[in-house]
Design a protein around this nucleic acid. Structure first.
Lengths: 145, 145
DNA sequence: CCGAAACTGGATGACTGTGTCCAGTTTCGG
DNA sequence: CCGAAACTGGACACAGTCATCCAGTTTCGG
């Protein structure tokens, strides 16, 4: 339902939030197991959206612009592929423009529940979650096959 | 977030539910404002999935297999493009397989909320909704532009 | 049987998402 | 200044989605 690019972007920012210091595209790619050439495009997008800052040259890399508690999953999703709500009738029916019909209202409510869930999760929340599985972290041999 | 094909399929089944009798692809296409050549492919898929029954020849057309109160939005969505939950860790980390990490658990919870919302809406619900905008219905000149 | 109505299936094309590659540019350290 | 490190941008390839068109098949009515 969400695109591959969104998944990759989320992994990348979670990693950057966990590290807290500049990391190169190659480092992020290895840690998140995302193809590095493609990840660089995604990070470029996040940089243009103001989520991440890039620094060229030796010692450079990518850093989060905000702290983990000021950046939500929704921010990242919207930076990569804006989560679009149904604002007006997809059929272009004028009467449905202001108040969606029952079908589209139901679809939009589902969108809204996703949006709300994403808005209520900051990266700090994700990292602080009392969960046995730490995001992106596996033992050396756990990613085989 | 949902594909165009899902939107088209939902419009089509809502229309068929409202009519209750066989309707040709052309009739459905006009009522739902979906390109008819493409709609025929979508209806073929719905027929293969057992949501709709097709009848060739004069007097034929498409009919719902079940009654509107036995068919949910989720059924239609899954027939066209299965709504996929996150079952195992997308990174392939073995430790995360059974219990998702906090990032993927949050993403999957969002998927689940969509799935639940769709499962709880039958076509009968959609049609019976006390809403001033009746699904797919506009006055003759409301779909201009 | 004949023909019109209606669905079926394959070929085709544009566009987007995913992914790779490489040449170019910036920056830092010496 | 020089070179290595690192990001940037463009070109390309491939698959899937969206969409169209047409020839073929089934079915009904007369």
């Amino acid at each position: 339902m969400l695109t591959q690019s969104v998944e990759y972007a989320l992994r990348a920012v979670v990693f950057l939030a966990k590290e807290g210091e500049p990391r190169t595209t190659a480092q992020v790619a290895e840690a998140t197991q995302v193809p590095s050439a493609y990840l660089s495009k995604i990070l470029q997008g996040l940089a243009r959206a103001g989520v991440v800052r890039s620094q060229r040259g030796i010692g450079g890399g990518m850093t989060l612009v905000c702290g983990p508690n000021e950046l939500t999953i929704l921010d990242v999703v919207n930076a990569v592929e804006p989560l679009q709500r149904i604002e007006t009738c997809p059929l272009g029916l004028l009467e449905h423009g202001v108040k969606l019909c029952s079908l589209h209202r139901r679809l939009d409510n589902a969108m809204k529940s996703v949006e709300d869930a994403f808005r209520n999760s900051t990266l700090a929340d994700v990292l602080a979650d009392p969960n046995p599985s730490v995001p992106l972290c596996g033992t050396a041999d756990s990613a085989e096959g």
